[in-house]
Write a protein that binds this DNA or RNA. Structure first.
Lengths: 217, 217
DNA sequence: CGGCGCTTCGTTGTATGCATGGAAAACCGG
DNA sequence: CCGGTTTTCCATGCATACAACGAAGCGCCG
């Protein structure tokens, strides 16, 4: 793989993991020095990330880590809800034994993480669970879209999962989701996933409401 | 706007319009000569298009116009159906007078184009109609996603709309869609849009079935 | 003393040069 | 004559050089 591709993944990971703060500037020279390459692959990586929306570039004014306006964030969560609902509907229609087993395993993983009271662990298992749902849709393109958006929302979800008592509620919702998919209930699965994500979005709004507006606003 | 951004749009337009054949090679030097710039902005444009999926790049082997495998194309149409369904559902829930008027106007545009038997005109009006539905979702992010995917599928839809008797059927479906949205029938709107797009996908499969496999296959 | 324009500096955007890796053609052995 | 190997060539990927635009600091004028 080329340097540019590696850098793209690396920078994306740092943004998703929250190591690069939202709104912070991404100086080409600085990054080039840090990674020991010239500006060219850095530029290419940043341009690619700009297409995905993770970073924002203004002409002649460089790139920053995207910090979307709250109303756009809410729109993103709503879109995530609809996409996950679509995954759930298709999964319920097409479920094969292999995916059913994967779903149950992912659910067990979440349950285990919950009992240890380890938020980070639950966060990881939650990611796995949703990934399994995406794959169970048996639509590679849709799954890819879902995963991409999921990653893009990761920095915000991270904040949001810390809300008190959210974890047990999340697990209960996961259980309903799996039940509906396994039962072949398309509408039920879609609805369960939609509300699951929407709640996350709502919770998120609670959070931002208490924070000061991001730099741009 | 920078050269790279202009070129990105220009090349994207040519692909969407079908001027650049699917699977054809995009030589950096050639494009640079053609547009009178150096390779650098061409490279940046191609890299960005690669992220959107319109072109495909293999390391050290350059870029080609994407020619997805049939099964992936089907997945893309299915995803389009789900996204449009989501737009319809939200539009039905949130419809404001302004959007209702726009929907009716777009419907009339389609009807007018149909009576003239002008396929190209209907194609254009069809694009407008779907765009209006996206906007009526009142979710800027979802609308953006929908539009992006719509454009990406444009080369294939172009083939598919030529199928005999598809146009009157398409119009009838548009009418059902508008009726459901205006009536505030979320499920009905979603279902109408889903089947509308799925049919396009199915029709498309009929077409590819008769064609030889693309180069890669 | 404050506002406005100019200059300077720094950063981005583009061009060009060079190294690397793959593909095709030429060459050699069987 | 055919298959495998080698060699050569060329496009890509990265580095470096240059140009152009924006931002900030400074001085001048009102």
């Amino acid at each position: 793989m080329s340097h540019a591709q590696r850098l793209r993944q690396r920078i994306e990971d740092e943004i998703v993991a929250g190591e690069l703060a939202l709104g912070s500037r991404l100086d080409e020279n600085q990054l080039a020095a840090r990674f020991g390459v010239s500006r060219t692959p850095i530029r290419e990586a940043l341009l690619q990330l700009a297409v995905t929306g993770l970073v924002q570039t203004k002409p002649r004014r460089g790139a920053i880590v995207s910090a979307p306006e709250p109303h756009l964030l809410l729109a993103m969560f709503e879109t995530m809800a609809e996409i996950e609902a679509a995954c759930g509907r298709l999964a319920a229609r097409r479920l094969v034994a292999e995916d059913a087993a994967a779903l149950r395993a992912a659910l067990e993983g979440c349950r285990a993480a919950l009992t240890t009271e380890d938020t980070e662990a639950y966060y990881a298992e939650n990611y796995v669970f949703h990934t399994v749902v995406y794959r169970a849709s048996r639509n590679a393109f849709l799954a890819e879209q879902a995963l991409s958006l999921h990653r893009r929302l990761a920095p915000y979800r991270r904040l949001q999962l810390r809300v008190r008592q959210r974890l047990p509620q999340s697990l209960a919702e996961h259980e309903r989701i799996v039940a509906a998919i396994v039962a072949g209930d398309e509408t039920g699965a879609a609805e369960a996933l939609r509300s699951h994500v929407i709640v996350q979005g709502d919770r998120f709004t609670d959070l931002v409401a208490g924070l000061r507006s991001p730099s741009a606003a």
